[in-house]
């Protein structure tokens, strides 16, 4: 894949001085961020830190107040850009799955292919079936979303996003509304995607997953990036007090204060 207008091909997402304000409330206070092709970036942080808003600003599901977002060199924040065309290249997976309840699983996967990519029924079906196999749910093609478990629904949602042949994937707390025993299957699908070289940005509370799969972890708080780097460093030896406090809370919610600079979380 060659980068447009001579831009370095390896940059998938570029965010420059991104601000998001809801009335008087400043959710994002100037984010700068680069994600390279093939990179897996996990964004962690307390709720209300703006991490989901950041993710939603990247495909402009949430309109940013100011700043620039470029995906594969195309500026999404430019009002003249055909946003729908760019979004087809950006897969998105939501916390609440957001499958279309009135459509069978297969049609959930084909409707956008047919409407926006103008694929014929047989080609769309073929792509959809291949992606259902990828997430291990080929046998559910005829089911309605309500007949599936939460974990299965989320895997279908991932397959739906993959059916558009995206060049990068955004995950917005993909396992947060799942029963604990269903989390593993979804993470396994995400792990295999990462191993295949998909560019991924994942907002998550699954610290274990971040440690194992992420190339880079970003810790956000109060609308800003507090620190970022290799997962072993950010999650194992956090440099900032706020990161330490957050990790303590999330990893040992019931125990007292621990020396976070010490042995760190056990993955």
């Amino acid at each position: 894949m060659s980068g447009a207008d001579g831009r370095e091909a390896a940059v998938a997402i570029e965010v420059v001085d991104l601000h998001k304000r809801f009335g008087d409330l400043e959710i994002l206070t100037g984010i700068d961020l680069v994600v390279h092709e093939g990179e897996v970036v996990c964004v962690v942080g307390p709720s209300g830190s703006g991490k989901s808003t950041l993710l939603r600003c990247i495909n402009q599901l949430e309109q940013s107040t100011s700043g620039t977002v470029r995906v594969e060199g195309v500026e999404l924040t430019d009002p003249d850009v055909d946003i729908d065309r760019v979004r087809r290249r950006i897969g998105m997976v939501f916390q609440s799955f957001n499958l279309f309840p009135h459509l069978r699983v297969l049609d959930n996967l084909t409707i956008a292919q047919r409407r926006t990519l103008k694929r014929g029924r047989s080609e769309a079906d073929r792509v959809a079936t291949a992606n259902l196999e990828r997430v291990g749910l080929a046998d559910k093609a005829g089911a309605y979303p309500a007949q599936l478990s939460g974990g299965q629904q989320q895997r279908v949602a991932i397959a739906r996003a993959l059916s558009m042949d995206p060049s990068l994937m955004l995950f917005d707390e993909p396992t947060s509304s799942l029963d604990p025993e269903l989390v593993g299957d979804v993470l396994a699908v995400m792990r295999s995607l990462a191993n295949e070289g998909m560019t991924m940005m994942v907002v998550t509370h699954e610290i274990g997953f971040a440690r194992e799969v992420a190339d880079r972890v970003i810790f956000m708080d109060e609308g800003a990036v507090v620190e970022e780097g290799h997962p072993d460093r950010v999650l194992g030896e956090p440099q900032h007090e706020r990161t330490r406090i957050f990790l303590q809370r999330i990893l040992a919610p019931t125990s007292g204060p621990v020396d976070a600079g010490g042995d760190g979380p056990s993955g």
């Binding site: 897969g91 998105m92 939501f94 926006t116």
Partner: peptide, 16 residues
């Protein structure tokens, strides 16, 4: 709202 968001994130226009 998530239904429209899912559709838009798949590249569908508002109309579609």
């Amino acid at each position: 709202r998530g239904q429209v968001e899912a559709a838009r994130s798949l590249g569908m226009s508002t109309t579609w």
